[in-house]
């Protein structure tokens, strides 16, 4: 049994302007110790997917359906009490902005101890020792001395380390990281990514890594989910995805990327803007921006189906596979430096 199995997850927000379908039929599964990357641009539904799994969407005006089976039990059907026992214990989460994600008026020690005592019946002393241990594990220098400091006394990178320590303090089976390095500088980002990889080996947690950065996904994920306008457009093993991308949107993302290793005279841009989720386009949601659009794309929603070659490589596009392989090869020729 998969650790987490998400089936046809849908979340919509009822706003004054109408219903926004923020997540529309997302399915995936995650095994123990695996890292799943979710890429997409802002508004693609990647964060909302995870907030829905965690039950962290604002309750008012939000409707979710589908299943998120955690070790066989549907998280969406759990009572608040049961769900709280899972949150921060079996599944924990870190967020994009380390500057605002910690309570400014409590010491980091108290926030870490709270995380332990919410799920373990242990004394203050034991919880504190555990907190120091985790702060050391995430590389906070002089952890014993700094445990009584307040968040504003730490730099952004250090605060993200504290967040990671807090997320891992109860040995979770799954860590959801929502753009954990986006607000950080590139050298700090490298530190955090390194740290997360190392800790994953030590703690054996599975990770869902949400990001808009294809580079970060390539470096961290085993499996990648590409989302566009609330739907999954492609889902594949990381080497497959970068080696033989099958969806025009994925091509667009890859072509848009300025690269460190290759000279590109001109970026291959995706024309237009992402659609409004209030009134998304009919058929394939990417069709108004797609250079390969056909009549069928405007009316029929393409299903997420395996490619003929690889049953693990899922994609949602009406194009025939031969054209896709040709286009993918053309794109790689243009953008990728030879690996070697």
């Amino acid at each position: 049994m998969a650790l987490l199995e998400v089936k046809d997850l849908r979340t919509s927000f009822h706003t004054e302007d109408g219903i926004v379908g923020a997540v529309d039929g997302v399915s995936f599964s995650l095994e123990k110790g695996e890292t799943l990357g979710i890429v997409g641009e802002s508004g693609s539904g990647k964060s909302v997917t995870c907030l829905t799994i965690m039950g962290l969407n604002a309750k008012r005006n939000t409707v979710s359906s589908g299943e998120a089976l955690w070790k066989g039990k549907n998280l969406l059907d759990m009572k608040p009490r049961e769900l709280r026992d899972v949150r921060g214990n079996e599944i924990s989460m870190i967020f994009q902005d380390p500057m605002t994600s910690l309570n400014p008026v409590q010491t980091i020690g108290n926030q870490l101890i709270e995380a332990v005592q919410l799920h373990r019946d242990v004394s203050q002393r034991v919880a504190r020792a555990r907190a120091v241990e985790l702060l050391k594990a995430v590389g906070i220098p002089r952890a014993e001395g700094r445990i009584d400091d307040y968040p504003h006394q730490f730099s952004g990178g250090m605060r993200q380390r504290v967040m990671i320590a807090m997320a891992l303090i109860n040995d979770p089976d799954l860590l959801i990281a929502d753009e954990p390095t986006t607000a950080l500088d590139v050298t700090t980002q490298a530190q955090i990514i390194n740290l997360m990889k190392r800790l994953q080996e030590d703690f054996g947690s599975a990770i869902i890594f949400i990001t808009h950065d294809l580079g970060v996904v390539a470096e961290t994920a085993d499996d990648v989910l590409v989302m566009y306008a609330a739907r999954v457009v492609e889902h594949a093993d990381v080497d497959q995805l970068f080696g033989r991308p099958q969806h025009p949107y994925t091509w667009g993302l890859m072509g848009s990327l300025p690269r460190l290793e290759t000279d590109l005279d001109r970026l291959i841009q995706i024309p237009g803007q992402p659609p409004s989720l209030l009134r998304p386009p009919a058929g394939c949601r990417f069709h108004p921006r797609c250079p390969h659009v056909m009549e069928v794309c405007k009316t029929t929603v393409p299903e997420l189906v395996p490619t003929q070659r690889d049953p693990e490589h899922l994609q949602a596009c009406h194009l025939d596979e031969e054209t896709k392989d040709r286009e993918a090869a053309k794109l790689l020729e243009a953008t990728m430096a030879k690996a070697g």
Partner: peptide
């Protein structure tokens, strides 16, 4: 050099071959 090696590369095959220079500490 550290900056260059810290940039994630959108090419898993190439990325795995690199050994990033991870700087200690903060600016």
């Amino acid at each position: 050099g550290a900056l260059l090696s810290a940039v994630p590369i959108a090419n898993p095959a190439l990325g795995r071959k690199r050994e990033p220079i991870v700087l200690e500490g903060d600016v």
